[in-house]
Structures are given as structure tokens and as C-alpha cells.
Computed example of a mutant assay.
Amino acid sequence: MKKILVASFAVIFISTYPYAAAETAGRTVKVAPNMVSPESLRIPASITLLKETSFYSDPEDWLAGEPAGSLAPQEGVKVLGGEYTWARGKSWWKISTDRGPKWISPEPWNVDVPPPEKIVLFNDTPIYATMDDTQEPSAILSPQEVQVTGAEKQWFYANGPDEKRWVRIHTSWLGDQWVHLPVAKIGYIKPVDYYSYYRQGQYLLDDPTYNGPYGSMAGPMFKWLGNETAHVTGEFVSVYDTNYQLETETGVKYVHEKGIPIVRGNETITLKADTPLFAAADGSQGVALVLPKQSLSSYEKIPSFNLYHVHTSLGDGWVNPDLAEPTNVVKVNTKVELRGQHTLYRFPSEGLTLGGLHVMDAVVEPSAYWEDPHGAIWYLLETKDGKAWVKKEADLER
């Protein structure tokens, strides 16, 4: 057998990128609308139709030009679901009618929704007696939450998030006044209480709608989160987006991403065999060390990836018990010819490679094999440099 060198190994096992559907030549791929249940500004619970609107029993009926009927202009149309794009372009709504759930797809200029009851001003903001910002402002408001009493018609519809719309607010000393705000800044803070794990690159902002620049020739303009858990205390909601309010050592800050949900609580984790300990939950900092069989104290976990944040005698890190050396291997005494190139792994899991090492056109004598939960076969190779695993590739071996 060719000599196998044991090197540091890398892993990437947290991914937030969704799979994209590919087009298939010769046929039409039908995609259902990406519907979301009503959630305040993002998807209003009711809408006003400003013109007669066709409705459909199924979105695909629109392609055939077969509406089930039409609705007259009216207020209070109950929404069962909608698309996040409704304020920017023609989008689908699922609504409740006296004929059961139906689908409509109006342009944003043919619907209207009320503004939020309150909005948050993140900057010093001039207020006006009328919808005319060429006049002198009545006053300048410091950052604060204010009560909304109205807005210009279709306040949510603009050519982009920076285009301004008028919102009427109430003040205690001047009564109702108007503010002229970018649509992306017309939003409110929804109180929440949960924890999220953040990877590298989440800038801590004073304004949730800020979109750069984040650095200059002098360096970064903001501090950022990296491989840490944060307490999320609010969500800034607008028709365009949701951003997240965090409690930090330097006060309240905002980030653009929700992070990965964390569950906090003490728990004892039992490792049944050698298990990799990761410095960061996403594996970006590599494997800190390999832990032998033992019990550990965990203080938080990422349930979606079965990851536990644990204390060890050599420092804290993240473990996934499912990535441990399997204990139910089958002993064998045979030779396997590996044709072509085969990647070497420290543990039998995609991503846990031996620093990019491979074997090429070799005959190996595995001491055991293991079938993973997905049905893949892995061979265990014992070498003077340590253990290595090779995944069975039917067309590359015999």
C-alpha cells in the first residue's frame, strides 16, 4: 500500500445556501409561489384592492388565462399568505373569499395597506406641518420611536428602498406632523427574545438599514461578530426586509442576518468514540483537536446541525456526536483495488478530509468497513501515521 501521510483536516458542514432548481431542456418547470404567512409589514394580514382584480383557483390557471372570477375594488381582503416581493412588483397573494381560498396577482400600485402603528427614527429627523420638505421644518426629532397617524397613499411603493415617502406622526407639543423617509426606513421594532450564532462578517450597526460602505483606507468602520452567540432582542421590520437588534457589550446594535438559532441550557454530552472538536461551529477555523471517549458539559447547542458548545480541559469548542468514529464497523480481511484518485478522510464524513490527501491507483487492505446512514460504504485504513477512511466509489474500484 502506498504511504499515507496524516495531516490536518478541514471541514465545512454548515451551509445556508439553498439548492437552485435547474431548467430542463424541452419542458417547462412549474414553480409554486414562495408563500409566507401574514407577519405584520412583511406580509400584511389584509389589503385593499384599488381596481377590479381577477382571482384564480390555482396560480397555474393564470398561465392558461382561466380566472375563476373577479373581485371589485374593496377594503379588508383577508390575506392567507403572500410573497415578500409584493411591494416591489407583481406578486401572488393567497386570500380568503366566500368561495374558499383563492389566488390573486395584482401590481403593487393596485393595492394599498395601512402604515405601521409606530415607526423608529434612527437619525435626527426633520418634521413638517405639511408634505413639503422645501419649507422650514417645524423641529428636528432625535432618534426615537414615534406614533403613526397616517401616510400618503401607497406609501410602500417606490422605485427603490431609498426613495422617500411621507408618513404622518403624532407629537406631544405640535400635534400631527409629517416626516419624509426612505421606504426602507419606514419600519418598527418587534420585541423578541432568542439567541443566534453568527459566523464571521456580521457588522454591528447603529442603523439597521445601513448598507455600506463598511470600511475605508483606514480599515473597518464597524466592529463585527465572529464565531459567537448573540442575544437577539428585537427585529426591525419594513416592507423590504427584516434586520436584527442585538444586545452587545457596547449597547444595542443591529445586523442584517438572523444568524443560526441557538438553544441555551446545560446538558451532558457523551462521546462514544474519538470525536473532532471544532474551534468554530461552521468549521471555518478547522479542527482544534480530537477528543477521546468521554462525557462533556454543554452550555448551548445548534439543534439543526446537532452541534454542542462544550467545555473541555483544553478550552471550549463545538462537537457533533454524529461525527464520531463509528463503533458498529464490520471487521474484514481483504484487499481492495482503488482505481483513480480517492480522497482520504480522518472521519467517515464528507468534509472531514485529511488535509486534501489522496491515494491514486492503489491496493489497500482495510481493517473494517462501515455503512453510513445514507448507505455509503467507507473503508477504514490503519497506517503507522494513524487512521484514514476511504469512501467506496463503485466505478473506481474492484
Score class of each variant (00 low, 15 high):
317 G>S: 09
309 H>G: 05
288 A>W: 05
341 Q>M: 10
264 R>V: 14
353 T>W: 07
244 Y>R: 11
325 E>N: 13
253 K>W: 01
315 G>E: 08
323 L>H: 15
242 T>M: 02
320 N>C: 06
322 D>G: 10
315 G>H: 05
360 M>Q: 15
365 E>Q: 15
291 L>D: 01
264 R>E: 10
321 P>Q: 04
275 T>V: 02
349 S>H: 14
325 E>V: 12
298 S>M: 05
376 A>C: 04
345 Y>F: 07
324 A>G: 09
348 P>I: 08
302 I>H: 10
250 T>Q: 13
267 E>T: 12
376 A>T: 10
343 T>S: 12
373 P>K: 07
330 V>P: 01
325 E>A: 06
299 Y>H: 13
286 G>I: 05
280 A>I: 00
371 E>R: 15
338 L>Q: 13
322 D>K: 15
318 W>A: 02
267 E>L: 09
297 S>N: 13
301 K>L: 03
320 N>D: 09
341 Q>F: 03
362 A>C: 11
274 D>H: 09
292 P>R: 05
270 T>K: 14
367 S>Y: 00
265 G>I: 09
305 F>E: 13
289 L>H: 06
344 L>W: 05
302 I>Y: 04
241 D>W: 08
252 V>E: 14
264 R>Q: 11
308 Y>F: 08
360 M>S: 10
275 T>N: 06
368 A>H: 07
252 V>H: 03
289 L>N: 08
270 T>W: 03
291 L>G: 04
321 P>R: 01
303 P>Q: 01
254 Y>W: 12
293 K>I: 04
279 A>P: 00
263 V>Q: 14
323 L>G: 07
343 T>D: 10
358 H>V: 15
325 E>S: 10
368 A>E: 08
311 H>K: 14
371 E>V: 15
344 L>G: 06
354 L>G: 12
350 E>Y: 12
